[in-house]
Design a protein around this nucleic acid. Sequence first.
DNA 1: CTGATATGGTTCATTATTTGAACCGTTATT
DNA 2: AATAACGGTTCAAATAATGAACCATATCAG
Lengths: 256, 256
Amino acid sequence: MSTVGKAISLLELFTLAEPELGLSDLARRSGFDKATTRRLLVALTGHGLVEQDAATRHYRLGAGLSRLARIREARFPFLQTAVPLARDLASATAETVHLSEFGIDRLVTVHVEHPARANRVNVDIGQLLPLHSTASGIVYLAFAREEAVKACLAGPLDAFTTHTLTEPVAVSHSMTEARERGYSICDQGLEEGVISVAAAILAADGFALGTIAVAAPKARTTAADIAERGLAAVAAAREISMRLNGDNLKALRRQA
Amino acid sequence: MSTVGKAISLLELFTLAEPELGLSDLARRSGFDKATTRRLLVALTGHGLVEQDAATRHYRLGAGLSRLARIREARFPFLQTAVPLARDLASATAETVHLSEFGIDRLVTVHVEHPARANRVNVDIGQLLPLHSTASGIVYLAFAREEAVKACLAGPLDAFTTHTLTEPVAVSHSMTEARERGYSICDQGLEEGVISVAAAILAADGFALGTIAVAAPKARTTAADIAERGLAAVAAAREISMRLNGDNLKALRRQA
DNA sequence: CTGATATGGTTCATTATTTGAACCGTTATT
DNA sequence: AATAACGGTTCAAATAATGAACCATATCAG
């Protein structure tokens, strides 16, 4: 792995659950030597991507990341446009709504709206979603480039529950249904007792760049709920796509 | 410079004005060899910190940055808490309000609220503010750790306009005034015709972690405006500090 | 149509940076 | 007082980064 890759994989060790980590901890988890880990941290700190708490000496993600993310967001106002619609969808469905953006070989959860009720599905910001075993992943693939689909189906399709689709043909079939329907349905593919629907958010080239999904406890979800949420998610996704692409209708050809 | 540092300095070449850059451009601006530049970009792309446009082959900041920034923001909800108050301040003053966070040796503009009027001061997200020549910088220093102040005054104090304070004692005096007043005033220190006031946002340890500032065209700004905005900025900053630190009053001792 | 000059991307011997075992000084814990 | 954890540092050895020269392609001017 390149040195740069190592440095970035250090950044990836910070999670919502553990946003601050000590040097030894980081070395252990990354598998790098303590000296190496430290040198990488110093380099990252020197550019503001990591900060060190003056008191505890622990490290955390730095303000420089906010800066870079805001520049990206300004160019590509995904959150800015999508969050209000996600919020609407969350209050309409009274279930958890999350937005994801594609990155490398997974979807990245970039925003979550939790409904104000005790029994709900919990999704964390920053969580990485596999493509074959989530509603978001399936609908993403349904509207993705051919290469991305091939790459996913060629790779290993891990089973997370007994319901996870691990056969390429099954995943492919699920994608076709999603494409025809406009939204995907994933029944406990990633976690037991959770059923989700998702719709694709399209870039100007007509391919998916992210998704919007509704996740709910299966126990209280009827077939009618699924259909209703699916259509609502499609409407929200279409609106987001339109706003992102300046009402460029051509971009939406694939979802029409 | 470490390889990691080089990679990060590539990220820093992307700005609001030029959010997409080609390989040759990046190599030229960074001063690195084209092969080196590409290898770094490949490493960054592999971890989602950079993306490549499929059509133009140009590079831009990637979704992975959004993810990391959101994790940081969840731990440290600076924007989440501060933006609503910045918005209130902007509508109350009808002038540009910006939020900055400290990073390395500068303040980083992480949010901007522009008033809905033609003649206003324009501030860009991601803009880096020097400490000695901006209202934000002065008030930050006024409530910063001794070391940070020393480091700033020891370094070169560049003049951006004829009004910029370039003498350490002058800057120091300006800091003292800001500390006593609660807010800083910067009269055309960074740009001609712009006058700003700023107040410090404090961390739990009582030291500044960022600032909130109001910037206005000097031509239409009276002394009364300055005082009014200064007090409003202090009120906003205090509210943000309180919300960030869970009403921990001890944290606010220095501003009291 | 051609030559000149861009662009993105690749190669591989040379070179310089990264690496990690062993080290130090502190700070809990026993 | 002894132990073990922590953060941080050192320097010869090992490894990864470097960059001049190289393609292939695209664009432009004459």
